[in-house]
Design a protein around this nucleic acid. Structure first.
Length: 589
DNA sequence: CCCACGATGACCGTCACG
DNA sequence: CGTGACGGTCATCGTGGG
């Protein structure tokens, strides 16, 4: 009897309108017997589709899915995760004609390997990495060695930064030792007292490790809430709520117009650094300490455009008399894409898009969603399960409604518009669609950056010399250009060749009068090269950079290593170059 | 009022494969 | 070049207890 269940159920028309019973009728005899018939006497399915599962089961049945598929999937995955269920049901439905392979569930065996080998415990509770896990680069080895010696990672990092990558281990240990001494004495020793060890003598006037040491977390002090007293110490960098930094164009109220910058942060030259706001803990503290203890300005670009983009900015620009690019971009999905309103279901409450990322939803995904919505077409509106599935996917992949029951990812030119770039900025010239998404996903939101940079306009009516590190597709350049700030000389460092081509192409199309010098590696920018450039073109007025976020971003499941990751550690090059330019600036004024 | 706690949701991504 | 598989870290918010 159970054998022909598949055939039997296939012949039943599940979409007859009498299936639309109200849930209150579940207890009725007819419904129950129906369910039994549906499962065609399959013992497992019947036992599974017992009283507690009737609702879930009926839910899917009322969506029009074949009962056999529903019961099979429920049996396999349980009923808790409805998203997974629907996914699987959709997959099965799509592969209807093909043969269904049965996967046997792996039962977790509590007695399998728990007490067999006790050595596993040692690995799990020790945070020290085994050597073969970290075969990376030389400086990582040094860092690892220091950490293994019992030093804090931050201390080790600062030491390496200060003494150079090639410093001997002994020197580094000495350095950290002195730093700890300073900390212990709680003194304010001037940096000249630190050991001028052999090797790299490019030590700066400033005492970085002093910040490092003194900036450490203090013994827990009883904190008074409510009163906003002036703290002499940089406490935990709290994200503002709402995330509007020092103000946004549309909310001029409650804006902070003045701030006190640390002495050695004051420009010129001005600098502007950007990265993801939601980095792993401690990352922004470290970044801030290196960038002269300037407090980050956290801004969500959803206050500038229709898509969210939570970013932290550290800069030494004035913050009064900012002005936005005009016209102000639309700040809701409907205003940005008025043509889509027609297709937008009333049960999709989104008004803002989530962060524009480097990846986008696939065509297959949008097809699955269409099927899911269509399966509920006989209803007033989709069931809660379908709604949740569709909305979750739409939020996850930033999908928009482009037709009846049809969702789609944004097109690259739509992303360009949202980010404030000219249309077709990234188009053509041999750039693939995938690369466009990637380049755009890594970019600035131009209106946000322009708002911050707008204060430069009256300061530099004749234009600026710009040093643009990790330029990407030229967000800073476009922002300054749209602000009407002439670009005299732009030195642009960008690894990706397609991105350099995009900036070069934009540069020529906009008839720039200045010079664009590009290079592909920040390592090329040493003091000699900077000296050469600045002697030819003059000093830099502005140093912009958004260093790679690969190892900081939450989407990264593979290598979210923090600031020491292979890409994100390029932040230290931003600091290195900025510090060089600052030191050289007085001679080129 | 304050705090602890759990639930919820977002996230400039990487990799292997065909 | 498109596609899917691949979790975890945090911030925020609501809630229940003190």
């Amino acid at each position: 009897m159970g054998d022909d269940s598949g055939l039997g159920s296939d012949n039943i028309d599940w979409n007859t309108d009498d299936e639309l019973e109200i849930e209150g009728f579940h207890s009725s005899c007819s419904t129950v017997s129906n369910a039994h018939t549906i499962t065609a006497g399959s013992v497992e399915a019947r036992s599974f589709a017992g009283p507690s599962n009737t609702k879930v089961f009926d839910n899917f049945i009322s969506m029009g899915f074949p009962a056999e598929v529903v019961s099979k999937v429920i049996q396999e995955y349980g009923e808790e995760n409805k998203d997974k269920l629907l996914e699987e049901i959709l997959t099965y439905t799509a592969l209807e004609s093909s043969s269904q392979q049965q996967q046997q569930q792996v039962e977790p065996d509590p007695t399998s390997s728990e007490y067999a080998g006790s050595s596993w415990d040692d690995l799990s509770d020790d945070d020290a990495f085994s050597d073969d896990e970290m075969p990376k680069s030389g400086d990582d080895d040094t860092l690892l060695a220091l950490v293994k010696m019992g030093f804090k990672e931050q201390e080790a990092l600062v030491a390496i930064e200060r003494l150079g990558q090639d410093a001997s281990l002994d020197d580094l240990v000495d350095f950290i030792g002195v730093a700890q001494l300073v900390k212990a004495e709680d003194s304010l020793l001037p940096p000249e007292d630190k050991p001028q060890s052999s090797g790299h003598s490019k030590l700066k006037k400033r005492s970085l490790y002093e910040y490092e040491v003194l900036g450490k977390k203090r013994p827990k002090v009883i904190e008074k809430r409510g009163v906003c007293e002036e703290d002499d110490e940089a406490q935990a960098l709290n994200l503002p709520n709402p995330m509007v930094g020092f103000g946004i164009p549309t909310e001029p109220s409650s804006l902070v117009t003045h701030r006190r910058l640390p002495e050695n942060a004051i420009g010129p030259p001005y600098f502007y650094y950007e990265n993801v706001a939601l980095a792993p803990k401690g990352v922004w503290q470290t970044i801030s300490r290196f960038l002269y203890d300037v407090e980050p300005e956290y801004v969500d670009s959803k206050y500038f455009c229709a898509a969210a983009r939570k970013r932290g900015y550290i800069h030494n620009l004035p913050i009064s008399n900012r002005f936005p690019l005009l016209p102000l971009p639309p700040r809701t999905i409907h205003d940005a894409f008025p043509l889509l309103r027609r297709w937008w279901p009333s049960w999709d409450p989104r008004t803002n898009l989530n962060c524009l990322q480097t990846v986008h939803g696939s065509a297959r995904l949008t097809d699955r969603i269409r099927k899911a919505v269509e399966s509920c077409e006989h209803l007033e509106e989709p069931t809660d399960v379908v709604k949740k599935y569709v909305l979750d996917q739409c939020r996850k992949w930033n999908l928009v409604w482009v037709g009846k029951n049809k969702v789609a990812p944004l097109e690259p030119d739509e992303v360009e518009m949202l980010l404030g770039f000219p249309r077709n900025h990234t188009r053509g010239g041999g750039i693939s669609r995938t690369d466009r998404f990637k380049s755009l996903g890594n970019s600035f939101q131009v209106d946000t950056v322009a708002y911050h940079l707008s204060v430069l306009k009256e300061m530099y009516p004749d234009g600026v010399n710009l040093l643009s590190l990790f330029s990407g597709i030229g967000g800073a350049e476009v922002a300054l250009h749209r602000l009407g700030i002439p670009l005299k000389t732009v030195v642009s460092v960008e690894k990706s060749e397609v991105n350099r081509n995009i900036v070069r192409s934009w540069w020529e199309q906009t008839n720039q009068k200045g010079n664009l010098i590009d290079m592909d590696d920040v390592q090329q920018l040493d003091s000699d090269r900077l000296e050469q450039l600045m002697s030819i073109y003059g000093g830099f007025d502005l140093i912009v950079g958004g260093s790679p976020c690969n190892n900081l971003a939450g989407s990264n499941r593979v290598s979210r290593n923090g600031l020491e990751g292979s890409e994100s550690s390029l932040f230290y090059d931003y600091f290195r170059i900025l510090d060089l330019v600052k030191a050289m600036a007085p001679r080129f004024r």
